[in-house]
Structure formats: structure tokens, C-alpha cells
Design a protein around this nucleic acid. Structure first.
Lengths: 137, 137
DNA sequence: CTGTATCCTTAGGGATACTG
DNA sequence: CAGTATCCCTAAGGATACAG
């Protein structure tokens, strides 16, 4: 793994996380990779939040630089790339689950089904498959 | 509790979280309130990340609007205010712990002691006191 | 010291055109 | 479709002055 050689405001772990994915867009890409099995450039563009192409390209590049995401050529269509989470990226799952639980508790309009939040609360391990099948677009 | 009446890009819970505290500064204030028991305006300014006064004022206002933080007059010195986490704010603790664990695994320079990360891993509940005593500034 | 306000520069990001 | 590039406006935010 590449060393992290980006300028930092401090050595605080919270700050490290913020400087790695702390903006209004990056975590949406992680979400799509983790829960929606999106893999192509166009997949990310089609999300509800409507991110623009320059932002997407920029964030994918940053995620690659920070070793959260890999970019490989699709052998079935060498004109496009497959984006995938690294171990470092996949390890954000527990954090994403906690975020989902928190939002589920306080954001009444969340599109995550109530019974699914309950299931998440009871079994925080090994739920990624459940997430993938239950998550609404 | 006030209803959430802010414009949203989507009803996704991850997106809700991003629109509530998804920027490079807000979570640092939450961190200071949660782990360092900072309560005054100047306390936040003195953190390592050196946020400027206009940013701090703006973020504190947003956090109040979103019911993560309360602002009350200090009866010992009525010229200053005491900032504190609401239940909604305190409920971010599990997420902050997961962030700390993740950064501890991948950010080698983190100032969080190794044995403390191990303790956090083993006992994710009821560790707030431990965090407060072990956290380095 | 607690905040607010202002000035000003840079970064974020929407729209869209363009290339392979 | 995948991805880059440009145009241009707005938001973020550093520095600093100022008021209570």
C-alpha cells in the first residue's frame, strides 16, 4: 500500500478521515460501490444526487490516490473501466452502517425501510448482503 | 425536536448525514464536544486544525439549527455561551468510534494510542470515559 | 475573551462542449 | 458511453478588524 503523503492539519484520526473522504460527494461513491454494486462511470452519474462529471472524475481520482478504490480496464469492453473498493474502502462498512442507523433514527424521510434498520441494529456484522438486497435506489 | 426542513438532494440516509455534517470542519467540533469536553467558543478555536472564527461561528449555527448542539448562556459569565451536544449529537458516538478504528488501522501517524484502538475494538460500548482520558490533544 | 463582520482569494461545482 | 476540459459563477474559508 502506498504511504499517505498528503498535507494534514493534524494527526487526529477524525481529521484523517475528513481529509480522506470529508466532503459532500465522496461518500456517495463509496455508498454506490458498497451497497449498490455500481462499477462503471455512468452508474455513479445516474444516482439520485446528480453529481456532475467533473466532480465524479475528480473524486474517483482522489479515491484512487488514497487507495480506497481501484480502477481496472474492463476486458469485455476495453474502452471502459471497472471501479471497485479496496480493503481499505470496504473497511468503511461499519462506519456507513452507523451513519445509516443514525440517519434512520433522526431523518424521518429516509428511504431505508424501518425493519431493515432494526435488523441492522441487531446484527451489525455480516449484513452487507442484506443491505444490497434491501436498499432502495 | 424541530423538523428537518432543509433542501435535500435525495432521501438516502448517507446523503442526509452528509448534508448535516459533511464538510471538512463540522465533525471536528463534534469531536471536541464529545471527547475533549470543550464547551466554549475559544476552546474550539484552540484545536490543532486552526479553524478560523467565521467558519466556527457558521458551523456552530448550523449545528444548532440541525439540533446537534445547544447553546446556553453561562450563568457564571453571562458574556459567554456553553455549547453542548444534544442526544442527536451524542448519538454520533458509534460513528466516531468506527471512524477512529478505521483511521487507526490505515493512518500510521494517528495520535490515538495503539492499545486504546485495541480496547475500542474489543469494547465498542461504554468507552466514552476511556476515550476522554486517553485521547491526545 | 466572545463573537460578528468584512475583505478578498481560492476551491467547489453546475452546465456543457468535446474527444475517443 | 467513458472520460476530459472549459467556462463561469458561487461557496468556502483565511486574515484581520472590530464591537460588546
Amino acid at each position: 500500500m502506498k504511504p499517505d503523503l498528503f498535507p494534514r492539519r493534524s494527526d487526529c484520526p477524525i481529521n484523517y478521515a475528513l481529509e480522506t473522504f470529508g466532503d459532500k460527494w465522496t461518500l456517495l461513491i463509496i455508498r454506490d460501490l458498497m451497497f449498490k454494486e455500481k462499477t462503471y462511470y455512468g452508474d455513479f452519474l445516474s444516482s439520485n444526487e446528480k453529481m456532475s462529471t467533473n466532480i465524479l472524475a475528480d473524486r474517483l481520482k482522489r479515491l484512487e490516490e488514497r487507495d480506497l478504490v481501484t480502477k481496472t480496464v474492463d476486458e469485455n469492453n476495453r474502452a471502459k473501466s471497472i471501479y471497485a473498493l479496496t480493503e481499505k474502502g470496504k473497511d468503511l462498512l461499519p462506519m456507513l452502517m452507523e451513519i445509516t442507523l443514525w440517519s434512520g433514527k433522526y431523518y424521518k424521510k429516509t428511504n431505508t425501510p424501518k425493519q431493515f434498520l432494526k435488523q441492522l441494529e441487531n446484527d451489525k456484522q455480516g449484513v452487507i448482503e442484506g443491505i444490497r438486497t434491501n436498499w432502495e435506489s
